[in-house]
């Protein structure tokens, strides 16, 4: 474990020398690159493929609190996380294409995992509608029109399972389940390759120091306890 000062000197030296190394040549003609060569859309210009405009307003307002823009580092809206979620719902994943969805559906211990008949699309449709009904009952307003602090309280209540979906006639989905899907997808959109619609400009990768799809570190693996000096690259060849 070297000292921080020593580290910084090594890092500066390496940064200088590494800029001399040609950047990784990304495979040209790889079909994956086609879509992402386009500029990531501005969130305000994006037309959702799956969500209705009402649902979209909820997703934007929820993502904004799950990973807010305040403080250091980008927020979920800065990085197009809602675009990621929308595209995932439009993809085979949103339709639970790989999952076993045959009946009968039987409730059991949560340790035995997901046991209801809803695809991720249906989870969002139901979860958003139920949350909006609850917000109307308790705040006389839609979720997206609540103050940030109040939205945080609603999200916490969802997370704790305190929003009683069963009382709103929902047979399977619980609020903590809905919340955990929403949070998981938000993190995925924040941290996955921009080719999937989120992590705009690889801003989340730059924040944490992940070099993305560089995927070649033979010259680096023996540089112990030295901060990696190069920014990320994406699957489409974007450089940060």
């Amino acid at each position: 474990m070297s000292s921080r000062i020593h580290n910084r000197q090594r890092r500066d030296f390496l940064r200088g020398s590494l800029t001399m190394i040609p950047a990784i040549t990304l495979g040209s003609g790889v079909s994956l690159t086609a879509r992402a060569a386009e500029q990531a859309p501005a969130l305000s210009d994006y037309s959702p493929l799956f969500f209705t405009s009402d649902e979209w307003a909820f997703v934007l307002a929820a993502c904004d609190r799950l990973i807010p823009g305040e403080g250091e580092g980008p927020g979920a809206l800065d990085t197009n996380v809602p675009v990621f979620i929308d595209r995932q719902m439009d993809a085979p994943y949103g339709h639970a294409e790989r999952w076993y969805m045959e009946g009968p559906f039987v409730a059991g211990s949560s340790d035995l995992g997901f046991q209801y008949p809803y695809t991720p699309r249906e989870v969002y449709q139901r979860g958003i509608a139920l949350t909006q009904r609850w917000c109307q009952q308790h705040h006389d307003a839609r979720f997206e029109s609540l103050e940030a602090d109040t939205r945080d309280q609603v999200l916490s209540a969802l997370e704790q399972g305190e929003v009683d979906f069963a009382a709103l006639d929902e047979e399977w989905l619980t609020s903590d389940d809905f919340f955990s899907w929403l949070l998981q997808h938000t993190k995925e959109g924040y941290l996955s390759d921009p080719i999937h619609g989120g992590n705009k400009n690889m801003a989340a990768w730059k924040m944490v120091g992940f070099p993305g799809a560089r995927a070649s570190f033979r010259d680096w693996v023996d540089q112990h306890d030295v901060e990696y000096p190069l920014g990320p690259v994406s699957l489409s060849g974007e450089r940060g």
């Binding site: 799950l66 305040e70 250091e72 580092g73 927020g75 999200l155 949070l183 924040m207 992940f210």
Partner: peptide
Amino acid sequence: PKWGKGYKDALRENYG
């Protein structure tokens, strides 16, 4: 924290 500003800070401080 699992979400919110605290999550973002934790991610930045602990990754790597």
